[in-house]
C-alpha cells in the first residue's frame, strides 16, 4: 500500500517535471488547453445535459471533421499557408449547429434520421478532403486526438474562444436557464426561444472544437456530457452544476494526461475512460444507496 502511494507520488512528480520540461512544450500546451477548456465544457456541458441535446452535440462534433478536412486541403493542397485546420473546424461546427438546429426545429418527424445523415455526411466530406490533401495526414489524430499536435497557436485560439463561450454562457444565464427549463413559457415571456436555442447550439459547436486536438471529435461529446451528468446528481441549481462540472472536467483531463504520459497511452481514450468510470461509479452508488 505504502509502495503504491509512493509510486503514485513519483508518477505525479514525474508528470510535473515533464510539464516544466522546456523540451516537451506540447505537454504543457495540452495541459493548459485542457484546463482552459474545462471551464467552457462545464458551463456549456451543463446546458447540453439539462436541455437533453447530447445527440445533437454529437452530430455537430462529427461534422467538425468536414471543416478540418477542408482546412487541411486549403492549407496543403491549395497552398494557403495561413489556414489552420482548426479555423475550418470552427466554421464547420457553426454551420452544422445552424443547419441541425433548423432541422430539429422544423422537421417534426424523422428528426433523428436527418441528423444522423448530417453526422455521417460531415465526416465523409472531411475524409474525402483529407484523402486528396498532398502528403500523409492521419485522420486518426483528429478522430481520437493527438496531443503532439497541440501548438502555442492552438493555446491562443482556445483561450480566445473560451472567453467568448464563458462570457456568453454567463451573460445569458437566466435566459438560457428559462429556455432550457420551459421553452414554451420563455416564449410567452417575450423571449425569442428559437434564437436562444440556436445560440446554445452554436456555443456547443465552438466548445466541441476546443478539445478536438486532445480527445478528438469522436469522444469529445462524452467529455461535454459526463462531468455535467455527474454534477447534476448533486447540484441544487444550475450554476452549481456548471462549477462542479468544470472542476470534474479539469480533474479528468489532467489525471488523464498524467496517466497517458506516464504509461505512454493515447490521451483521449484515457481521459474518456476515467470520466466514464467515475460516471458509472456515481450511478451505481446512487442506485445502491437509494
Amino acid at each position: 500500500m505504502i509502495t503504491a502511494v509512493r509510486q503514485e507520488g513519483m508518477l505525479l512528480i514525474d508528470f510535473i517535471e515533464a510539464l516544466l520540461n522546456p523540451h516537451i512544450p506540447f505537454l504543457r500546451y495540452a495541459f493548459m488547453v485542457g484546463l482552459l477548456a474545462s471551464v467552457a465544457f462545464g458551463v456549456i456541458g451543463s446546458y447540453v445535459v439539462v436541455r437533453r441535446i447530447s445527440y445533437i452535440a454529437g452530430a455537430i462534433s462529427h461534422c467538425v471533421l468536414g471543416g478540418i478536412g477542408v482546412g487541411l486541403y486549403l492549407q496543403k493542397g491549395v497552398g494557403w499557408a495561413w489556414v489552420d485546420p482548426l479555423y475550418g473546424a470552427v466554421i464547420a461546427a457553426l454551420a452544422a449547429a445552424v443547419i441541425i438546429g433548423f432541422v430539429s426545429i422544423h422537421a417534426s418527424q424523422r428528426e433523428d434520421t436527418v441528423i444522423g445523415a448530417l453526422w455521417a455526411v460531415g465526416m465523409a466530406i472531411g475524409l474525402l478532403f483529407i484523402a486528396k490533401t498532398p502528403g500523409y495526414t492521419d485522420p486518426m489524430s483528429y478522430l481520437f486526438g493527438n496531443i503532439l499536435l497541440v501548438s502555442q497557436n492552438d493555446l491562443r485560439l482556445v483561450a480566445g474562444l473560451d472567453i467568448l463561450i464563458i462570457g456568453a454562457g454567463c451573460l445569458f444565464y437566466q435566459r438560457f436557464l428559462a429556455v432550457c427549463f420551459d421553452e414554451e413559457y420563455a416564449r410567452i415571456r417575450g423571449i425569442n426561444a428559437t434564437a436562444y436555442y440556436l445560440g446554445l447550439l452554436c456555443l456547443t459547436a465552438i466548445t466541441v472544437v476546443l478539445l478536438v486536438r486532445i480527445v478528438g471529435i469522436v469522444m469529445v461529446v462524452a467529455l461535454l456530457t459526463l462531468p455535467a451528468a455527474i454534477a447534476g446528481h448533486f447540484a441544487r441549481v444550475l450554476w452549481q452544476m456548471m462549477l462542479a462540472a468544470s472542476l470534474l472536467c479539469a480533474v479528468f483531463i489532467s489525471s488523464g494526461l498524467a496517466i497517458s504520459y506516464t504509461y505512454d497511452m493515447p490521451s483521449g481514450p484515457v481521459i474518456i475512460v476515467i470520466a466514464g468510470t467515475v460516471y458509472l461509479a456515481v450511478l451505481l452508488t446512487r442506485w445502491v444507496f437509494r
Partner: peptide, 25 residues
C-alpha cells in the same frame, strides 16, 4: 432532474417583463 430552485422557477415569470430585459445571473 432539472437543477433549479422554487425561487428560480418563480423568477422566470419576470423574464423580459415590463421593467426591461434581464441579463446575467
Amino acid at each position: 432532474l432539472f437543477p433549479v430552485t422554487v425561487m428560480d422557477v418563480t423568477l422566470m415569470g419576470r423574464l423580459a417583463a415590463q421593467n426591461g430585459v434581464r441579463f446575467g445571473f
